[in-house]
Write a protein that binds this DNA or RNA. Structure first.
Lengths: 342, 342
DNA sequence: ATGAAAGCGCTAACAG
DNA sequence: CTGTTAGCGCTTTCAT
């Protein structure tokens, strides 16, 4: 394995001291060196295909140009676009991304963060936040720069990039109301997450604002944002015997679970029951029926999260921003006017 | 920011020399130290919450316990499961994964690899291979351990984990033939990729083996594995006026593109034309119609790739394995008997 | 403007 | 068995 050239090699060829080379190679200190010499050193460096070893310099400077990204489950389709856009943004700034899939386990999450910290990451992007999240607390205590994405915590004021859930719920609810639905059920998510919690409360508030009476027994927060949780919850609702013509869900996977439950009972969507999702994950436009849902700008989420983190790495005292990006209602085939008067 | 404890801190508290601590902390050299002392040192280390700094030790040992994973596009649904399972396998072995999305650009791919090499990664998992791939060539020349996943190269003998495309095509073709299709079109992928190339040739061979006459003009290799490429290709086929009752595609995205083209013309699948995909990417079972396709064990692909790489990192002279995992035909709603005799 | 020397945290060859 | 010493590649005082 041909060994890479280092600063000493360049120094030898240029007939100068390694520290001089270091100064040339570092834009911030380049001006300390005579123009002519700098040019010569750069020429040699280029000729040798020199690349600074960020680990070695990081050892000295405590700056590794490395950022950790932790997500709960890469196979959940909302995360790939976030990770990709964050990674590319970081890459553009000369950083690399260490990716870890925590599998939603807090223990492994702690482990992961410890490991990353040991590697002197400059900051962390967390897509795993719970409303009360000891792991986030720890990061803050230890002063390691973090940005939360997709979800946030309830206690501290932490840099975060999230969707505007109030707006999303408002758009979905208005849509159903405008179609003529009067008996609307809601399937939400775990109240331990900011999205589950926020969307549920947004629903209550918006219903009130619209003067819409919701039946409390038709408002269920599922234990997980998953297809099975969605199916089971809708089954429960259907078994209750209560009448409703539409289900507003807090997540596309829940909505897909509703599809399953309906199909299993020989009901059809949207003829018997309208369904709305939340996220607009890839390919829901191709499903049967195409899902009416809220489009979240996942790419922008990732880009913004990366930018926020970079800003805080470069200036730890940068103001703590919490960005809420606006979702957009995408009307497709899973919602329609309720059939006949009930 | 509370600074982490290091080997010197432990040495001071234990009243020994740092190198002794190092020996204790390294399982391989632990036996050089007296049992009692080792226990004491470990106790102190634990008390301080010590964690070895892998960057510092890596600087000395040239081993960073870091692996780079490069993929062409994370938002292509085949990659997340591969990345996730590879990452978790690496994590289990004490390695971390640096993820980079090359956006399929060779230039940026080189950049990425250079950057990773500068960071002394122990090895690389590449999901980006072209049949002739200068980047792979470079890695081999430089002796950096690599494993290809999903696709492979045609020239060298390189460690790789791929799908058994011959088998996949055979299963799909037999399925269509058994349904009674006699005029079958094929939409393949770029011949610059091993999957595009291999599946096309597998088709030719299997047709011959089955004694099936394929019309050459109905066999098209699309310029990309994408929905638009699939739609455009099928449009061309349909415009040609040639008769066919089924389309065998080399990729799910191509198949979805076919759905679009059919729909735009008011044709329906499978009534007018049967379609098979390849990959069984997430949620194709929910599409309209549910896609008949070949399931590729993506998780296993990722796990095996990671294992192969770890084996080669630990022993660079380990035999070069090329694993072909068997796909499975999943029959769903996009294929049916051809309607009426043509 | 440049060189000398020390050190980031860790390991390894060499003594003893 | 354990301490000493040197050094991985780079940066950063401190001299000059």
């Amino acid at each position: 394995m041909k060994t890479r050239s280092n600063i000493k090699d360049i120094a030898r060829l240029a007939g100068v001291h390694p520290s001089t080379v270091s100064r040339v190679l570092n834009p911030a200190t380049r001006s300390m060196v005579s123009e002519a010499l700098a040019v010569e050193v750069l020429r040699i460096a280029d000729e040798l295909g020199y690349r600074r070893n960020p680990l070695a310099s990081g050892l000295r400077t405590r700056k590794t140009f490395t950022v950790g990204i932790i997500i709960p489950d890469l196979t959940n389709p909302v995360f790939p676009p976030i990770v990709r856009s964050a990674e590319q943004t970081l890459d553009g700034a000369g950083y690399i991304a260490i990716l870890a899939d925590s599998g939603s386990r807090e223990r492994s999450e702690r482990e992961i963060i410890e490991n990353m910290r040991a590697r002197d990451v400059d900051g962390l992007i967390l897509a795993t936040a719970m409303r009360r999240d000891p792991v986030v607390d720890t990061c803050i205590e230890q002063g390691i720069p973090i940005v939360l994405v997709n979800r946030t915590v309830s206690r501290h004021h932490v840099p975060a990039v999230v969707n505007d859930d109030e707006l999303g719920i408002e758009l979905a609810l208005k849509h159903l109301v405008e179609l003529g639905h009067e008996h609307i059920a809601y399937i939400g998510g775990p109240q331990s997450t900011s999205t589950g919690y926020g969307r549920y409360h947004a629903l209550l508030e918006n219903a009130e604002k619209l003067g819409l009476e919701l039946d409390n027994e038709l408002l269920i927060n599922a234990p997980a944002f998953s297809e099975t949780a969605g199916a089971e919850t809708l089954n429960g609702l259907l078994d209750s015997g209560k009448a409703f013509t539409a289900v507003l869900t807090a997540n596309d996977l829940l909505a897909l679970g509703c599809y399953d439950a309906l199909r299993a009972r020989g009901l059809s969507c949207p003829e018997d029951i309208s369904i709305t999702g939340f996220n607009d994950m890839p390919y829901v436009d191709r499903m049967d029926p195409p899902l009416t849902t809220l489009h979240i700008p996942h790419d922008a989420l990732g880009v913004k999260a990366a930018q926020l983190l970079l800003a805080r790495i470069e200036n730890p005292n940068a103001p703590i921003e919490e960005l809420r990006l606006a979702p957009e209602l995408i009307v497709r085939g899973s919602t329609a006017r309720p059939t006949i008067a009930s």
